[in-house]
């Protein structure tokens, strides 16, 4: 099975980040992991990457509930980033919310590939690999 070059996690919960990183390492999911604690930080960071002429991470795991800029707002701004490989980026919403309104809303965003319910499992990441890599 192929390996993903670069992955991005946008979440404000340190425990989740720790857990996800740990699973990724265990199954050798990717080479590089970028972490942002809220939507604003993520936009700023991704803009930096673009400015340096580098490629965007091919998979983004995005939390919905975050301070300053939440996941929905991030999506609004993200699609405006002028990077040549932005369209090849796959976004996964990863949330603890079982609120059906959230699940429904995800369908409005073309850039979002799927909705993964926390806690994330090795099987979830296997599926992502199968889809993306």
């Amino acid at each position: 099975m192929k390996k993903i070059e670069s992955t991005c996690i946008i979440d404000d919960d340190p425990i989740f980040i720790y857990g996800t990183k740990r699973i990724m390492k265990e199954m050798d999911f990717c080479d590089d992991i970028l972490v942002f604690n809220n939507g604003q930080d993520a936009i700023d960071g991704l803009m930096d990457i673009t400015a340096q002429g580098k490629k965007l991470p091919s998979v983004i795991f995005l939390d919905l509930n975050m301070p300053i800029m939440d996941g929905w707002e991030f999506l609004e701004d993200f699609v405006k980033i002028p990077n040549h490989n932005r369209e090849k980026v796959t976004v996964y919403i990863i949330s603890s919310s079982v609120d059906p309104r959230d699940v429904e809303r995800v369908k409005d965003y073309d850039v979002v590939n799927n909705y993964i319910l926390k806690p994330i499992t090795p099987q979830d990441l296997q599926n992502v690999l199968a889809e993306v890599a």
């Binding site: 919960d13 425990i15 319910l117 926390k118």
Partner: peptide, 8 residues
């Protein structure tokens, strides 16, 4: 979110 963390 807390319960999922706990289980993880």
């Amino acid at each position: 979110s807390h319960s999922s963390n706990l289980s993880m």
